[in-house]
Design a protein around this nucleic acid. Structure first.
Length: 467
DNA sequence: AAACAGACCAACCGCAACTAT
DNA sequence: GATAGTTGCGGTTGGTCTGTT
């Protein structure tokens, strides 16, 4: 087994010992490049004979230099050999961490850009606390960096009573989860997964966050979307009290405590609701960074945005041209063709979803106490028919989405692979990425940089001094 | 200017997966 | 197949910085 760093370091607490170790490190450093193989052999023998007390704590520049030199000579990996070969009094783990987080080339330092912040939110919505996987989508960023960023901001936002995700992510999350509604009747997650798998759906669950909160936030946002623009203010607390369905709440399309979020009574113009598959506002490096994922999504003007003055921001001409260049037209054409397929796919998915919910013989609908809508509408005094309600919701959703997909303008900017219903398995990287890219297009840099929250208080990228 | 609180960040720790013998 | 060694990941901690009172 790996020598436990803790075991080796337990005894290293006093300043004197630290000094000794530092001196030892200096000694090892002096060997430098001139160290002969014989010397190394001696060191190895010595190391084998005498337990080495490894150093811990912050790295010094000389230690860094030693590590860099080692990697330059021997390449990455075999980290436990670093101590043997260089005399560096650090465990392999520590060396690897230092290298990956601070020393390796092409690391991007500094604060996250708004684009990166949005992407992190999107990835987190899709992947959960999979920091390493998230980092894979953010070249130059480390998992530790992303983790730190997310934890601090999440903590801050939660303390401020604000939703963790920006609205475009919430909406996408809700839509991507909508297909799982039919499985809500399962209280057992495993059974749910199995059923979903059997039905051809992916079984992995979305981000393991406080799902009730997330969905409440989603609900809140959808309410916002369906509300007249001026009527918008921050509730004292956006989080509803814990609800019995919280456990599977992620499988709901919309959350508790309100009437149909996309109720026909509050019609939205189809053109107002873009799923955001349009062209990216990202340009240059941002596009190339994500190019392998879904290149077409980054080109062409973004025509539509989320409905509501809260989120809709006129697209500046410069942004429309951002992804352009000489090849923009060709890319757009290509994109358009691809889009037709995507539209079909999404339409099919929606139809499936619609059918599923319509036909779904949920025991809850007969008043059994289960069922998403029964619970979702509170069970307190709201006796609205769940089935009818679902139909209304879904019809409205269809009304909003399908025309959007068919509309030439929307189609020209739509790039949805249909993966909305398929992604989210940990092993389905492309799907997850599709969503991320779609989401980028949904919100884009403009929305990530703009206010998305409550009375101007809540900004996704400008939360540094909230509280 | 000092004290305090919060934010930020680097590093550590434990665990699990993977690989080699 | 069992065991040892290695690597990677995610959670957590502790130190430092910065802004506020």
């Amino acid at each position: 087994m790996e020598r436990s760093p803790g075991a080796a370091l337990l005894a290293s607490s006093s300043p004197e010992e630290e000094e000794e170790k530092t001196a030892a490190a200096e000694e090892g450093r002096r060997h430098g490049e001139a160290a002969a193989a014989e010397q190394q052999q001696e060191e190895e023998d010595e190391a084998a004979a005498v337990p080495v007390v490894l150093k811990k704590g912050p790295w010094t520049t000389s230690e860094d230099a030693m590590l860099v030199d080692h990697v330059r000579r021997h390449g990455e990996g075999n980290w436990n050999a670093v101590q043997r070969l260089t005399g560096l009094l650090r465990c392999g783990k520590s060396c690897r961490l230092r290298w990956t987080n601070h020393l390796r080339p092409n690391l991007k330092k500094g604060s996250f850009s708004p684009d990166e912040e949005l992407l992190i939110a999107q990835l987190h919505a899709q992947l959960g606390n999979k920091w390493a996987r998230m980092a894979a989508h953010l070249p130059g960023r480390t998992d530790n960096e992303i983790k730190n960023y997310w934890n601090t901001r999440t903590k801050r936002r939660q303390r401020a009573g604000l939703p963790v995700y920006p609205p475009e992510v919430q909406l996408q999350l809700a839509l991507s989860n909508s297909k799982r509604c039919r499985y809500d009747e399962f209280s057992n997650v495993q059974a749910l997964d199995a059923a979903a798998s059997a039905a051809g759906y992916t079984s992995s669950r979305p981000a393991p966050l406080d799902l009730a909160r997330q969905l409440a936030a989603t609900s809140q946002m959808v309410q916002i979307l369906s509300s007249p623009p001026p009527a918008f203010s921050a509730p004292a607390s956006p989080w509803p009290a814990a609800r019995p369905f919280a456990r599977n709440a992620q499988y709901f399309q919309f959350a508790a405590h309100h009437s149909s979020p996309v109720s026909p009574s509050t019609p939205l113009h189809p053109a107002d609701l873009s799923l955001g598959y349009g062209g990216g506002v990202r340009a240059g490096a941002e596009q190339s960074r994500l190019a392998p994922l879904s290149p077409a999504s980054h080109h062409g003007p973004r025509v539509l945005e989320l409905p509501s003055n809260q989120f809709l921001q006129p697209m500046p001409p410069a942004s429309a041209a951002a992804g352009g260049g000489g090849g923009a037209a060709a890319l757009l054409l290509d994109h358009h063709q691809h889009q037709n397929q995507n539209a079909e796919s999404l339409e099919k998915m929606l139809q499936e979803l619609h059918d599923a919910i319509k036909v779904d013989p949920s025991p809850a609908a007969s008043g059994g106490g289960g069922g998403v809508l029964e619970r979702r509408h509170g069970g307190g005094g709201e006796n609205k028919s769940g089935g009818q309600h679902r139909d209304d919701d879904m019809d409205t959703l269809f009304d909003m989405m399908i025309p959007t997909l068919n509309a030439p303008a929307a189609a020209a900017t739509t790039n949805h692979s249909g993966s909305t219903s398929q992604h989210s398995s940990d092993d389905q990287e492309p799907s997850a990425v599709d969503l991320a890219v779609d989401l980028q297009a949904t919100g884009g840099a403009s929305s990530s940089a703009q206010d998305w929250g409550l009375d101007g208080v809540c900004q996704w990228s400008s939360m540094s001094r909230i509280c």
